[in-house]
């Protein structure tokens, strides 16, 4: 038992009163104050440099794009009229919504936008349908197999995107390897017309963006506590039911992240439709590039870019929000 003599009747005081401030306090106080001020200064430098870079090279350019989208095209270098003009000491601002009106009038743009959305959405769905079982299989593989399998998913991402798209040309051509193979099998008796069609664009996008779907899906599926499934089974859920009611809802963050990682860049895709797509596979990224380089109409190209950005603002915000939540969850761990 505790051995101690009982203390005086009154309960022990919480703290004795404090004495007068010591003279030692002043010693070196100034130096320390100075040093302490330097600490946040180093921090703000570390913050300011990348933020300044991004402001200059990422945010300001959007302002310029917006500005130019409101000006008129001209045959000059740069090929647009200035938005502000000094004439007889009067600053005139000439806002020109003509580029946006032009986009509304010409059905080419609307068709391209809708087509981009359709292609991106369907490709995202196909990536999900193929990527989910793949991610699930990797997450459920024996632990020593997981990282090699994951490596196999990432590896194509490190090889050139351009070259991987290029590889499909040789396969999908009229006299390409796929047609040769199918003819040899006897499945078809005339070569299929796949290259330079929308089908080829779908294949190209699914092929190129599949790893972006698998990685976030794997990340959430791998974290999933297997005992939850055992608990569901124990409570009488059949495997399929357990999957639908436990695994699927819990992997939803991965589904959303993966889908957005595929959908957002796919909407603005340029390389795949220009290499694999034909005239029917009109996408907004190609339209933008053509306005910019072939037509040299920078104001219309800018207007197209602004419209594309408006289209993607919501998905991008969702993605950012999702990432923020995930970071907060990681920070809590």
């Amino acid at each position: 038992m505790i051995q101690a003599s009982p203390p005086p009747a009154a309960k022990p005081a919480a703290a004795t009163p404090v004495a007068a401030p010591p003279t030692l306090a002043a010693r070196g106080g100034f130096q320390r104050a100075l040093r302490h001020r330097l600490l946040p200064r180093g921090r703000s430098l570390v913050t300011v440099v990348p933020v300044f870079w991004l402001l200059l090279f990422f945010l300001v350019p959007f302002g310029i794009v917006l500005k130019i989208s409101l000006s008129e095209a001209a045959i000059a270098m740069p090929p647009y009229e200035p938005l502000f003009a000094w004439a007889e000491n009067v600053l005139t601002l000439r806002l020109n919504l003509g580029n946006y009106l032009f986009m509304l009038e010409d059905s080419l743009y609307a068709v391209a936008y809708l087509n981009s959305l359709k292609i991106a959405a369907l490709s995202t769905l196909m990536c999900l349908l193929l990527g989910y079982p793949m991610a699930y299989a990797i997450a459920r593989a024996a632990p020593e197999w997981r990282s090699p399998l994951l490596m196999l998913v990432i590896l194509p991402f490190w090889t050139s995107f351009l070259i991987r798209v290029y590889a499909w040309i040789g396969i999908l051509k009229q006299e390409g390897l796929l047609n040769q193979f199918l003819l040899w099998l006897g499945v078809i008796d005339a070569p299929l017309h796949i290259l330079y069609s929308e089908t080829a664009v779908y294949i190209g996008i699914v092929y190129s963006y599949l790893p972006f779907m698998i990685l976030p899906l794997y990340a959430t599926l791998e974290k999933l506590d297997l005992t939850l499934l055992e608990a569901a089974a124990d409570l009488g859920a059949r495997p399929w039911k357990a999957f639908v009611s436990v695994t699927l809802p819990l992997s939803l963050p991965g589904v959303i992240a993966g889908s957005l990682l595929v959908f957002i860049p796919a909407v603005g895709e340029f390389v795949i439709p220009s290499l694999l797509g034909g005239p029917d596979a009109l996408m907004i990224g190609t339209v933008l590039w053509n306005e910019f380089s072939a037509n040299r109409d920078w104001p219309v190209a800018s207007a197209v870019a602004i419209a594309l950005l408006l289209l993607l603002v919501v998905p991008i915000m969702i993605f950012q929000h999702q990432q923020g939540k995930q970071q907060a969850a990681e920070a809590r761990r």
Partner: peptide, 25 residues
């Protein structure tokens, strides 16, 4: 929050937009 959004935005921005805006800059 703004810094975070600014840092990760280039990650998801379609390249055609980034390319055009940088050129104009």
């Amino acid at each position: 929050a703004i810094v975070g959004a600014l840092v990760t935005a280039p990650l998801v921005m379609p390249e055609v937009i980034t390319g055009l805006s940088l050129l104009l800059l």
